[in-house]
């Protein structure tokens, strides 16, 4: 990582560790077309310390994947509008040129996707694609690159890695492809790994293997991980901190135990209550009424108010500010009081 890491100037409450690896301030993303404007991300703030795992938990359309893509500037430039500030390792991502972005992607920040079949190029072997990346970023020779690719496949526990190097993506099973995808992402030892629902398409017995693998590699390599999921169970397995996202905003953030045991925001409470668990047989589920918000036409004020059982007149007046309950705990709800100091 570059030595010029600067700490985020604002949000003193968040600055528990002095030099965050990632700091995002007031990130907004809009998708513009002729007729419509979709407000996908509406003011996201967070910091991520080196070696920390933050999980963004949200339903479809909450803006979690868009946030992830914005960090790498992967959104289509002509159809999307980004604003706010993104610092990764001291680098102002918003101000980078195309060449600088190419340099950043893959080397300092890497990403893994839900569907590895579409993320790999189907006409090149797995080995080829990993070698291409390390030759490009680390300037290795072809034979050294092949050695490195072999080490990487071994690291992600692919059996008989030498043979697998010459496999095409379609020759591998889903779990193995996801392992290869992780090997590719980690090929240049990134300090930040972005994971966009990497286990959603996998079977239960394979999902837990991939989660274990990610957790082990994250610890061994000391990388920070930003993990996006809709599955509370997966978030609990992998994360240090959880950020709950609704309609393009973080409605609540905090350490994983606090979020699961003492959710503060009504949406988090509803999400946890409506998640079906083992011992709930015969009991009625507490569903959140209504449907997720329409991003074409956001309601004024708190976007969760139309579905919230505690909603009052004040909720629809203005967007609730971030209330910091403790240095690590935030909720955006008028019912939540600030920390008694």
């Amino acid at each position: 990582m570059t030595a010029t890491a600067v700490s985020s100037p604002s949000r003193g409450a968040q600055a528990t560790r002095s030099d965050p690896l990632v700091s995002v301030e007031d990130l907004q993303v809009r998708f513009i077309s002729h007729e419509t404007t979709i407000s996908a991300v509406n003011g996201v703030n967070f910091t991520l310390a080196p070696g920390e795992v933050l999980c963004i938990l949200g339903e479809s359309g909450s803006g979690k994947s868009v946030t992830l893509r914005a960090l790498m500037r992967l959104l289509p430039p002509r159809r999307s509008q980004l604003s706010g500030r993104i610092l990764i390792g001291g680098l102002d991502v918003m101000g980078l040129s195309r060449a600088e972005l190419t340099d950043l992607r893959g080397s300092k920040v890497a990403m893994i996707f839900q569907e590895p079949m579409t993320a790999f190029d189907p006409v090149f072997t797995i080995g080829n694609q990993i070698m291409e990346t390390v030759i490009q970023h680390d300037g290795l020779s072809r034979s050294d690159a092949r050695k490195r690719a072999l080490e990487l496949l071994d690291m992600v526990q692919i059996s008989s890695p030498a043979r697998r190097l010459d496999n095409y993506p379609h020759e591998m099973s889903g779990g193995m492809r996801q392992r290869a995808m992780i090997a590719l992402a980690l090929s240049c030892r990134p300090s930040l790994l972005l994971a966009d629902e990497p286990t959603t398409a996998l079977d239960a017995t394979v999902q837990i293997q991939i989660l274990q693998l990610l957790r082990r590699l994250q610890r061994e390599l000391g990388m920070a991980v930003l993990f996006v999921t809709h599955d509370v169970g997966v978030a609990v397995e992998i994360s240090d901190r959880i950020a709950v996202m609704y309609a393009g905003r973080f409605v609540e953030t905090g350490p994983v135990r606090a979020i699961i045991r003492e959710p503060q925001h009504p949406y988090t409470q509803g999400l946890l209550a409506s998640t079906v668990l083992g011992g709930m047989r015969g009991r009625r589920l507490e569903a959140i009424p209504g449907t997720p918000v329409n991003l074409l036409d956001l309601p004024p004020g708190c976007t969760f108010a139309p579905r919230c059982k505690h909603a009052e007149a004040i909720c629809t007046k203005a967007v609730p500010a971030e209330v910091w309950l403790s240095p690590t705990r935030m909720a955006r709800c008028v019912r939540v009081g600030p920390a008694p100091v």
Binding site: E59, L271, T275, V276
Partner: peptide, 13 residues
């Protein structure tokens, strides 16, 4: 989505 899943499960019951 999880919040809608609970509604449909209640309906099925």
């Amino acid at each position: 989505d999880k919040s809608v899943e609970a509604q449909v499960l209640n309906l099925l019951v």
